[in-house]
Amino acid sequence: MSEALEILFTASFWVAAIRIASPLIFATMGELICERAGVLNLGIEGIMVAGAFSGWFTVYMGGDLWTGVLVAAMTGAMFGLLHGFLTVPLGLSQHVTGIGVTLLASSLTYFSYRILLPEVTSPPKIEPFQPFAVPLLSDIPVLGPALFNQTPLTYLAYFTVAAVALVFYRTPLGVAVRAVGENPAAVEAQGISVTALRIGAVMAGSALMAIGGAFLTMSAFNSFFFEMINGRGWIAIALVVFGSWRPGKALIGAILFAAFDAYQVRLQQITGGVIPYQIFLMMPFVLSIVALVVVARRATYPKALMIPYQKGER
């Protein structure tokens, strides 16, 4: 039993937790931006697949790692544009369209993989982002290496949270985006286009989701596998609800979740096969549902979430 507790005090555990949290942070921030603007984006799972592949493939073809991140973000933004166009001006069901975008993005990715790499049997590897120890900060015991001996993409994830919070709460653009998810008619009355604002938010959010996918192929691992996203997108959607649509709370949720995930892997090793490994793998998904039930009562959805807006209508 003490062995199970000791895990929590090792630096390597927290290093792993932050690494597992990083793609979730990107994805959760991405979904949060979409939903705050009033658009549920169920395309997230497929967009992460597309981002994971496009970023990795750019580097595989000789591109720079940061170019890969940029390509992933642009790929995500393109799928965001598609989702935004179908759900905002056309007002199609956000559920069905999102599932469609997920199916399209993932199947297009698998199709491209087969076309671009027809001969490969085992997935080729790239040289991924390497950990970079931030001087001084990484010397703090336990927390130092966990937070500040990570790859640059993890630092970008921290920066993203700060940037999203800053834009949301300190800039006119952020106020407009939040307002468009609460009361689009009021935004339109100010002479701002609801359509442009919402599509823009969905594109920006989708770009972040794609970077979240790219984190897996370019930082956590070094190659692309089918099914590697494995429900992370859906978990990000749960994390947005858990975080009450606030960047800071969502960040804490993502880290807690990742810590739990890192913990179950280690617990699995300690228990040594007495409990079927599937039970441990199930826990993150079960935990997400439990978390949703716990917060559901006091969840305050953006008021215009999933409600299409028509000019001149109230």
Partner: peptide, 26 residues
């Protein structure tokens, strides 16, 4: 969960897919 607690069924049914597949594997 939807009618009693207001939990969005999209997310719960999606997450259940993963739980059930692992359960079947077990």
């Amino acid at each position: 969960l939807k009618t009693r607690f207001g939990v969005d069924e999209v997310v719960t049914t999606l997450l259940l897919n993963f739980i059930v597949l692992l359960f079947v594997s077990m």
